[in-house]
């Protein structure tokens, strides 16, 4: 039975661990400003005229005259309230800049994720079911290549074949409105889904294979249960390790959006990060890095809580 106490204890423990992880990441992200060669104040000023007044103003705005630990705490205080400072490149508040672009990245990631679920999970199940067969060997080889494929090269080749040569997909822009947006995002989403899909295929195949190896399957077979009945038992149990690796999948997905957005010249968070790094727009870089880490850490937390609630074995391990 799922007791209230153990769930509470587990939730609290994982919550604390997540907060600790994010604090560690936030500290590393904060030190990026110090890591960048040169005077932080001049770096923050960027190409603007560096008069003594302007430098003094920047030092004041970013608390650069305070001791290091206090600087960090003041910065963290701002971050918690959604204040990452101003972009050096555009002079806008970082939060406003991100708000303009976050939707496109979410749509791209969501489209790629849906494509992945529709293709990679069924393929993974089918491959595991007939492990060693022609389909299994073919798709597994494809996945080895796909998971390590350079998305930027694949994307440009797709862009050439389907955008220039066959002229069936748009080459530039991100489209207006729902359907047109999806139309413009289809090539980028396919590019992104190749890598993520290969990863999800491998995870699914491994999870289903591990279940098929269990004693209960042999027992069910010898009792004469139908393939359909066995399949439903195996899939239910294999679901869990697949869901558990969602954190990993999300990390892969968000890392991928950077390259795919640059490849297809899409104005999302990923291409903003790439541009900001080249421009040394540190506040923007800090914000995107920390937000990505937060999304991934919260996914991992949600997944852990889910598996704790869904799987009695996880509960007994946590209690032990």
């Amino acid at each position: 039975m799922l007791s209230q106490g153990s769930l509470l204890k587990f939730t609290l423990g994982r919550l604390l661990a997540t907060v600790a992880l994010l604090l560690a990441v936030s500290f590393i992200v904060f030190t990026l400003l110090q890591l960048t060669p040169g005077d932080p104040a001049r770096n923050l000023l960027g190409p603007r005229a560096s008069s003594p007044e302007a430098l003094a103003e920047i030092r004041d705005q970013y608390n650069l005259n305070e001791p290091f630990v206090r600087q960090y705490l003041l910065w963290l205080g701002g971050v918690v309230q959604g204040d990452f400072g101003d972009s050096i490149r555009s002079d806008e508040p970082v939060t406003a800049l991100l708000a303009n672009r976050v939707l496109l990245t979410m749509q791209l990631a969501a489209l790629a994720f849906v494509l992945t679920l529709l293709v990679a999970v069924p393929l993974g199940i089918a491959a595991a079911w007939r492990a060693g067969g022609a389909i299994d060997r073919g798709v597994t080889t494809g996945a080895i290549v796909g998971v390590g494929a350079p998305s930027y090269a694949v994307g440009l080749l797709l862009l050439y074949v389907f955008g220039v040569k066959l002229d069936v997909f748009p080459i530039y822009g991100s489209g207006e409105g729902g359907l047109d947006r999806m139309w413009h995002l289809s090539l980028p989403a396919v590019t992104l889904a190749i890598g993520v899909g290969a990863l999800v295929f491998k995870l699914t195949r491994t999870a289903v294979l591990a279940e098929l190896d269990q004693d209960y399957v042999a027992f069910a077979q010898s009792r004469g249960l139908s393939r359909r009945q066995i399949r439903s038992m195996v899939l239910r149990n294999a679901m869990l390790p697949i869901v558990t690796s969602l954190g990993l999948v999300f990390a892969f997905l968000f890392g991928g959006t950077i390259l795919v957005e640059v490849t297809f010249a899409l104005q999302g968070i990923g291409s903003l990060l790439a541009g900001s790094v080249t421009f040394k727009d540190i506040p923007v870089v800090q914000a995107i890095t920390l937000l990505t880490a937060a999304v991934i850490a919260l996914t991992a937390l949600a997944v852990d809580l889910f598996s704790f609630a869904a799987d009695p074995r996880v509960r007994s391990r946590a209690a032990a």
Binding site: P37, A251, F254, T289, T292
Partner: peptide
């Protein structure tokens, strides 16, 4: 290892290598 695996490699590589330049 946990800390480094919590973020996409592409992202950290881009940010660190880019800012150090």
């Amino acid at each position: 290892a946990d800390l480094l695996l919590a973020l996409p490699v592409t992202l950290i590589a881009l940010v660190v290598a880019g800012l150090i330049d």
